[in-house]
Structure formats: C-alpha cells, structure tokens
C-alpha cells in the first residue's frame, strides 16, 4: 500500500501543533522508519495514518485515495500498534487474538490457524491460556504486535514496537518485519533505538518539533548527510620476523599522525584497527604512506560508512538514547 501525506497537520489545542506541514510519500512494500525525539509528533502522525485520529489539516492518501469517514474496509487493511499497551488483563493471549481476529473479520475457517500461527511466531504458545495481566512486559508487547499482524494487513504501523523486548525478541521482530515486507506489506515503524532501524528500514523520515527534517531512501540520506568523520579500517598482516613491524608499530605511527584509535581486533589472520583520522583524505594518504614506510604490512585500508545514528545526531537538535 502506497501512502501519500500532503501538508498533514494536527493540533490538540488549536494553538500548538503536534505536527504540521508533513509531506511524505512511502512506497508500497517498503519499511519506513519514523524517528525523532519525544514530542516530535511521531505517535500523532501514526495515529492519523491508522485513521483513528483525524488530521486538523492536510490529507492522507492510501493507494491514491483518501479515506472515507468510518472507512472500515481501509482499517481492515491496516494493523496498528499504538502507544500505551492497551490490553484486556483478564483475557488470555489466545482469547485476545481470537477477539481481534473476529473484530477484523478474519474468516472463521482461517481464524484458529491464524491465532495458532501468531502464538507460535511470537513464542506465546506456553502462555496461550494465561491471563494477559500475568505476562511480562516483553510478552505483552509481543502479543500486541501479534494482534496487529493477525489479519495480514497491507499496511503495518508500529509505534515503538521494540519497547520492552529483550535482545532476542528484538532480533526476532526484525526477522518478522522483513518477512512481512516480503509479502508486500508496507511497514511504518517508529523507534528511539536507531541501530535497530539502521539496516531494517529502506525509507526514513526524521521529525523534529512537529516538522519533517528529512525523508527518503536510507542510503540516499546517509550519502547526502554523510558525516565527515573519516573513520578508516586497516587490515594488517603479522610481521614476517621478530624485527618486523606489527600492530604495535602501526599504532605508534597512527598516534604520531594524530589518529584516534576507536577499536582493534583480529580477523581472518589479520589485525584490524579502526581509527579516526582528522583532516581529510590527504591526511589518510600520508598516514598510509608512513605506515608502509615503517614496514607495516597493510593489506587493505577502507573508509567506514556513517551510521544512521551519526546522521540523526547531526540533524537533530536533541539527542536520543
């Protein structure tokens, strides 16, 4: 499902705008990350996209058509996880999923299998009959995400889905989202944890104080807003003899050229050193020549690409995480 937002805005008090002037296009079948600090307007935007809240101004189009009033057919194609973890504490996961399956008009023949599939996918089989109130925070979050995927939506909107999930749960969520995209579902996800979105999203929108700062393809954005950090990774072969120059010598040369060593390790028979060389690529060329001259057996020298977090930190006025 392709989403087009045109001049979208929402105010709760008629005075301050939670989000305003949002123009964004999310291609069908993509995973779009919505990032921004608290109060940037992410949740408001997602609620409007889920059609549970009306924009104060502007328009949203789903596959080129605006939603009708009380558009149940459209909502049937959307899975929305809002903030606040609203769960019925006395219902078990199986009952909860079945209830929402019926509310989303999943056919009777498919419902039992769909519920079972979600319980297995989200590792809730052992807790299928336990009251939701007795589940851990992570399990509750998994149940809520399962509810959003149960009816196989064409648009999946997740507001902070990784909240409360342990590392394994986050990794599994990533796998599930990638699998969901493969089905052609458009996924819209907001998160504070940028590393999770880094190689998951192919589209990105950064919001700041109710306004869109930047949006587009993740690779393009990183390319466009490449941070001039000049971090390089060196792979060095061990010295051939006891007098040969090894990693110790390499460190001395790097420090001598005012390099900041970020990390080092050993991989495939080579020493690896990641270092920040201030002053541009000329400085790196000089440093590399000095290393070779010092007898260091440099195999490769490659520039490390900036991360999403670096780009975000550069663009954002407030820090997150």
């Amino acid at each position: 499902m392709r989403i087009d937002l045109r001049n979208l805005g929402k105010t709760y008090d008629g005075d301050r705008w939670a989000i305003r002037g949002l123009d964004l296009t999310i291609p069908s079948g993509s995973i779009c990350g919505l990032i921004g600090p608290n109060g940037a307007g992410k949740s408001t935007t997602l609620r409007m996209l889920a059609t549970v809240m009306r924009p104060s101004e502007g328009e949203i189009q789903f596959d080129g058509r605006p939603p009708e009033v009380d558009d149940a057919e459209l909502r049937r194609a959307i899975g929305f996880l809002g903030d606040g973890n609203p769960l019925y504490k006395h219902m078990s996961p199986a009952e909860y999923l079945r209830f929402f399956g019926e509310c989303f008009r999943v056919p009777d023949k498919e419902l039992a299998a769909a519920v079972e599939d979600m319980l297995v996918t989200f590792d809730l089989v052992d807790k299928r009959d336990a009251p939701a109130g007795s589940l851990s925070k992570g399990m509750r979050q998994r149940l809520l995400i399962a509810r959003c995927l149960l009816h196989k939506p064409r648009l999946l909107i997740l507001d902070e889905p990784a909240d409360g999930l342990d590392p394994r749960g986050r990794s599994e969520l990533r796998t599930i989202l990638l699998r969901t995209r493969e089905r052609g579902t458009t996924v819209l996800i907001s998160s504070h944890i940028l590393r999770e979105l880094d190689d998951l999203c192919d589209q990105l929108a950064i919001l700041q104080q109710g306004k869109l700062v930047v949006a587009g393809d993740v690779a393009d954005i990183i390319e466009r807003y490449e941070v001039r950090r000049f971090v390089y990774e060196l792979r060095i072969l061990p010295p051939t003899g006891p007098e040969g120059a090894g990693s110790e010598r390499a460190r001395e040369v790097l420090v001598g050229h005012r390099a900041l060593i970020e990390s080092s390790g050993f991989e495939d028979g080579c020493e690896t050193i990641t270092a920040q060389i201030p002053g541009g690529e000329d400085r790196m060329a000089d440093t590399l020549a000095a290393l070779v001259a010092a007898g260091v057996r440099v195999v490769t020298c490659s520039r490390v690409r900036s991360r999403l977090e670096d780009v975000y930190n550069r663009l954002s006025e407030d820090r997150v995480n």
């Binding site: 059609t51 549970v52 149940a72 057919e73 609203p86 509310c103 509810r147 009816h151």
Partner: peptide, 14 residues
Amino acid sequence: ENTLQPLAGSALRA
C-alpha cells in the same frame, strides 16, 4: 485503559 482505540481501529464500523 485506552482499549477503545484498538477497537476503533478495527474493521468494525462505528
């Protein structure tokens, strides 16, 4: 408990 919001976002008409 804000459980009305997921219901309002379901495939049921108002």
